[in-house]
């Protein structure tokens, strides 16, 4: 090999590299996209989990939407009021009050309490099970326990125990992805510090609910009558709690004949909420 070869190689590559470098440098100037500074600041403040709970593809997309006024500063459910305030400060507007939420699976029908229509052995996915007569569970509003919400949860906060999905409140960020994923629509977002909730979504008549499940709400109105704060209402044979009115007195828990009003602070069935 002659030494000129080496010189040529060096020169050619130097020119090639220099040309590409110069091209990119010019391109970065010519093709520069005006960036939204506010959007970048907001992206810094957002949690960065990219969970998609806000309905945008990620935190950067939400920041862009907030900066251009398409979304509200409190659109991030995960960040809660803290983030909402920071975002509002960047945008120079007053933050609306936000309440931290958590997901709650409104079903108490574990395997030994509820009846099955048939033995489901298909794909372990609630959507697939729904195709087969609405799932194997007799109750049309019961948790199928196949874990579609578990796989969708970006925070790993849900697990299936005894055929019913459970949310670990200390991991749940209240993004609401599971609420949208559940084909039975039995996951609800409730205020993080809601003390009590009714662990059932059955709106059928009491007698019918009894045939489905040992722990379904039969609409007996005992909780409604006994609630001193007037926070419980029966609507279509299903009790529901107004979380703003609930004082957490525990009376409904002790009175409920079906034992399906649960407390996040006292009972061991679910992980205890750290308030």
């Amino acid at each position: 090999m002659e030494w000129t070869n080496i010189i040529f190689a060096v020169i050619v590559f130097a020119v090639l590299g220099g040309a590409i470098g110069a091209l990119l440098a010019i391109a970065s100037r010519v093709f520069a996209v005006p960036r939204n500074e506010k959007a970048e600041e907001i992206t810094e403040v957002l949690p960065g989990a990219n969970c998609g709970g806000c309905g945008y593809s990620g935190c950067a997309a939400l920041a862009e939407a907030i900066a251009t006024g398409k979304a509200k500063p409190n659109s991030c459910t995960v960040g809660g009021s803290e983030v909402a305030e920071k975002v509002a400060a960047i945008m120079g507007i007053e933050a609306e009050h936000t309440v931290r939420m958590r997901a709650q699976v409104m079903c108490s029908g574990t395997k030994d309490h509820s009846k099955q229509k048939y033995d489901y052995q298909g794909i372990t996915d609630c959507q697939s099970a729904m195709q087969l007569g609405g799932g194997s569970r007799l109750c049309p509003n019961g948790c199928l326990g196949l874990g579609t919400c578990v796989s969708k949860c970006p925070f790993g906060a849900i697990e299936v125990r005894d055929g019913v999905a459970f949310v670990d409140y200390n991991k749940c960020q209240g993004c609401g992805v599971c609420v949208a994923a559940c084909p039975k629509h039995i996951i609800k977002l409730i205020p993080f510090n809601a003390k009590h909730w009714v662990g059932c979504m059955s709106v059928e008549k009491g007698a019918l609910t009894r045939t489905y499940c040992d722990v379904g709400c039969i609409g007996c109105r005992i909780c409604e009558k006994n609630c001193e704060a007037g926070a419980i209402k029966i609507d279509g044979f299903l009790a529901s709690i107004d979380y703003d009115k609930c004082t957490g007195c525990d009376v409904c828990i002790s009175k409920c004949p079906r034992k399906i009003i649960w407390s996040g602070t006292t009972q061991a069935r679910n992980p205890v909420i750290k308030l």
Partner: peptide, 30 residues
């Protein structure tokens, strides 16, 4: 032209990397 065919792999990596960067900027703008 310069008899440097044996260096094609390195040259291609360089060119492709630069090209992709350029295309990316071009697309983002237009």
């Amino acid at each position: 032209m310069f008899g440097l065919e044996y260096l094609k792999t390195i040259a291609f990596i360089l060119v492709i990397a630069g090209l992709v960067q350029f295309i990316e900027m071009f697309l983002r703008r237009f």
